[in-house]
């Protein structure tokens, strides 16, 4: 029981990270109907920016942890947004309205570019960051046949889950209340009509990428804090899993992406906890396949009726 609760907490933490990345996939898919393959790598870029900012702040002598965390978060969000905007501007906008495969190929190309750019400029070796936030609250403690077990909710997990919740609420409000959100939803429905009604479609799409990238940056920073190790390749797996989360929740749906992220995180952690760690990725990928085959509209998505 204690073990299960601990895994639950860990799973929710990991799931929050996946959920934040998944929102980027789901928003972009909703608005231009393409899988932004480079999004996982934007997440990776975000974590590198966070790392460099963190080390930079330490180097110039700012060490008050709460201040550092906030500065890192803001800097990472801003700078990663620039990356998200640039990727869209260079690789997707010139191909808007073009053939379906072209933006997919440029997306894969961009993903390769980002990975290798980081590898070339920052080196291929992993970057370990010692844990920065220690301690936590003990939720339960008990005994199992293997000895005592303590269920802990660390401060780090609290920060991750709390930040995710706050951002989710903020973004939901942004989408539902502001004119930007309205423009976004209009573009999702019918881009041409939205343009005719005076919505600046290019700008709306760019802002979608910017928002997705900002959330991915937060996820990147959280990932860095949680695991303490990043390299140029973390974007691929995290990206595929976050995409799985987006699909599982129903692509195009923001709460769906968050829910899907939490589920994928839980499944992965539970699988590692109770079965084999080696096959945890297989579990995530299998769920992706199963969901798409049997429930292509996901948990919270709208079913698609085939038009004849």
């Amino acid at each position: 029981m204690e073990y299960f609760v601990q895994q639950l907490v860990n799973g929710l933490t990991l799931g929050s990270i996946y959920g934040l990345i998944a929102i980027g996939y789901t928003m972009v898919y909703g608005i231009i109907g393409m899988i932004n393959f480079a999004h996982g790598d934007i997440f990776m870029i975000g974590s590198f920016i966070a790392l460099a900012t963190f080390l930079g702040l330490m180097a110039i002598g700012i060490t008050a942890l709460p201040l550092v965390l906030i500065i890192v978060l803001i800097v990472a969000m801003l700078f990663t947004s620039a990356w998200g905007w640039t990727v869209e501007r260079l690789a997707y906008r010139p191909l808007r309205g073009s053939f379906r495969l072209a933006p997919l190929i440029t997306a894969i190309g961009m993903s390769i570019v980002l990975q290798n750019f980081v590898q070339v400029t920052q080196g291929a070796r992993v970057k370990p960051l010692p844990p920065q936030i220690q301690g936590g609250v003990t939720l339960m403690d008990g005994f199992t046949e293997n000895g005592p077990i303590v269920v802990q909710l660390s401060y780090m997990q609290m920060i991750i889950i709390g930040t995710t919740l706050a951002l989710m609420i903020g973004f939901s409000l942004l989408i539902s209340r502001t004119s930007l959100g309205r423009a976004q939803r209009a573009c999702e429905q019918d881009r041409r009509m939205a343009a005719l009604l005076g919505v600046n479609v290019d700008r709306t799409i760019s802002l979608t990428f910017v928002m997705g990238a900002a959330l991915a940056a937060v996820a990147g920073f959280m990932f860095l804090l949680l695991y303490g190790v990043i390299d140029f390749y973390i974007g691929f797996l995290a990206g595929v899993k976050a995409f799985t989360a987006a699909v599982l929740g129903g692509i195009g749906s923001l709460p769906g992406a968050m829910l899907g992220g939490l589920l994928i995180g839980l499944i992965e952690v539970m699988w590692s906890g109770y079965f084999t760690v080696e096959y945890k990725d297989v579990a995530a990928f299998s769920i992706l396949a199963i969901v798409l085959i049997f429930m292509p509209s996901g948990l919270l998505g709208k079913p698609e009726v085939e038009k004849v």
């Binding site: 109907g33 595929v240 084999t276 080696e278 990725d281 297989v282 990928f285 992706l288 085959i293 292509p296």
Partner: peptide, 28 residues
């Protein structure tokens, strides 16, 4: 057989998943 009723991008992502599954199985 299971994936061919999927359309477009979904097919792409499921085939990607299968490719990765096979690689992970070969690895482990």
């Amino acid at each position: 057989f299971p994936v061919l009723r999927l359309r477009g991008d979904y097919l792409a992502i499921v085939t990607l998943a299968f490719g990765e599954i096979i690689r992970v199985v070969l690895l482990n």
